[in-house]
Every structure is written in C-alpha cells, then in structure tokens.
C-alpha cells in the first residue's frame, strides 16, 4: 500500500487547513512570489532594446513647405537649422494620405500634424480631426522645391523591409516577426515601406522603397519583416535615400 496511511493531515476544502499544510503553503507562496519577481526581472532585462524614435501625439503644430503625392505623400520643409528636410506624411492610423494631396501637389502648403521622429528621419501624422492641409498664401522658400533624383548606382544589400511610420517612432519595438502583421497593415494602407540594411562593418542605412517609381502592390506584403537580399537602384532625393527594386529582385534569406 502507499502514502494513504501517513498523510494524516487530510485536506478538505471546507475544513480548516491543517497546520503542516499551512506552513508548507506559506513557504510555497513566498517562494513563488519571489520566483515571480526574479523571473519578471530576468525576462525583462534580456529584451532586445526597442530602439529610439518618438511620437508626441499631443504636440500638434503647423508645418510649411512644398507637398507632393508621388510616389508617397511628402512635405519638404525647413528644419530648425534652416536647411530643407523631407517629412513623409501619414494619417493618424495605419494609412497614407497620398490620394488626398490632389491638386495641391507641387504647391506651397500648411500642414497641421504631429511629428514622428527617429534621428534624421521624420514623418508628420496629419491632424485629420480638422482641415489638415491648405494652400499657403506666402510662396515657399525656393530651396523647398523637390530636387531631381540623383542616381547612386545599383546595390545589393541584405536587410529587413519595414513600415516607415512604426520604425520612425510610432511603435517601439517596430521590427521583426512579431511586428510583421502591423507592418503589413501599414503598408497596405499606404504608409511608405522602408528597407533597413546593415553592411558587414555594421553600418546601417534606411531607404524608402518603391517599384519603378511607384508604390508597391500587395505582393510586397509577404516579404515584410523577413530577412531578404535586395538588388535595386539607389538614388538620393534631397535628404532621402530611395531604393527602387522590383519584387523579382528580392531573395528571401
């Protein structure tokens, strides 16, 4: 026969807990609580740092500059140092606003929105609550006219395709497989896709992506957040790096 003779502290839910069990559970409870704290600390400490990037949604202000809708909605504006800077434009959620630029493309405008910023990369989430874009009565600084693309040659790089809005600071972290579906929703909605590449010397670069000068179709989506090698034409558009690559030139790693 077995333990049935010796566990004299028979436990019934509705009766008082026997003293021996009480001591045991007190110790077990304390042990598990400390264990939970240690486990929480350990697991949290080993996380990959989420990267910089800020979006203060409350700080809504006006931005003046020249706007375009192709291939993506962008505003060329003056930064604090007085130099031209290109900010991508998005709605408040996961969508682009290119289709809503219309006849204002190429004109001087005032845009109301909040800034999403990571290093020198910036995006303005326009304030859809009100009239977020209007023509500016004062002409824009001539330096704000969108410059001609300057070809930098063909490149082949390994990296990850991500959505510019989250990576610029709408989410932290904003990379990798767990973020894939979110990136997919953003890009499907018209947020510009970006290619984040790292070379052997661990130098990294972020390029805005397009396909033959136009946004991609939905066939880009399965490649998001996966390690890929891309073969494409690199060019500089003012302060933006642009990678033009057809999906046929993507290779999953």
């Amino acid at each position: 026969m077995n333990h049935k003779q010796d566990d004299d502290s028979f436990f019934i839910g509705w009766a008082d807990t026997p003293a021996a069990d009480r001591r045991f559970f007190l110790r077990a409870g304390l042990g598990l609580t400390f264990g939970a704290a240690a486990m929480a600390g350990g697991l949290a400490a080993f996380q990959t740092p989420p990267g910089p990037g800020m979006w203060n949604q409350g700080a809504v202000r006006e931005w003046r500059g020249i706007v375009t809708g192709t291939p993506y909605a962008m505003l060329r504006t003056l930064d604090l140092g007085g130099g031209p800077r290109t900010a991508l434009l998005s709605c408040l959620g996961k969508c682009g606003v290119a289709a809503r630029i219309g006849s204002l493309a190429g004109k001087a405008v005032v845009i109301t929105g909040s800034l999403i910023q990571r290093g020198r990369h910036s995006m303005i989430a326009v304030n859809e609550m009100g009239e977020w874009i209007r023509e500016d009565d004062t002409p824009a600084d001539p330096s704000l006219v969108f410059p001609k693309p300057e070809p930098l040659g063909r490149i082949s790089l390994a990296g990850e395709i991500l959505d510019s809005k989250c990576w610029f600071g709408a989410m932290r972290p904003s990379e990798g497989k767990v973020h894939k579906s979110c990136a997919s929703l953003c890009i499907r909605g018209g947020i510009p896709p970006a290619f984040f590449a790292r070379d052997r010397a661990n130098k990294s670069a972020l390029m805005i992506m397009m396909d033959g000068g136009r946004p991609y179709g939905y066939d880009l989506l399965p490649f998001l957040a996966d390690p890929v090698q891309i073969d494409g034409a690199l060019s500089r558009w003012g302060d933006l790096l642009i990678l033009d690559a057809a999906i046929g030139n993507f290779e999953r790693l």
């Binding site: 609580t33 939970a36 929480a40 600390g41 949290a44």
Partner: peptide, 13 residues
C-alpha cells in the same frame, strides 16, 4: 503573485 510579476516586468523593462 500576478501583480508582482507585472510590476516587476514593467520596472525591469
């Protein structure tokens, strides 16, 4: 225990 874990995780993060 649940509260300790969640606060511990947030604090450590």
């Amino acid at each position: 225990g649940v509260a300790v874990y969640l606060t511990g995780f947030s604090a450590a993060s």
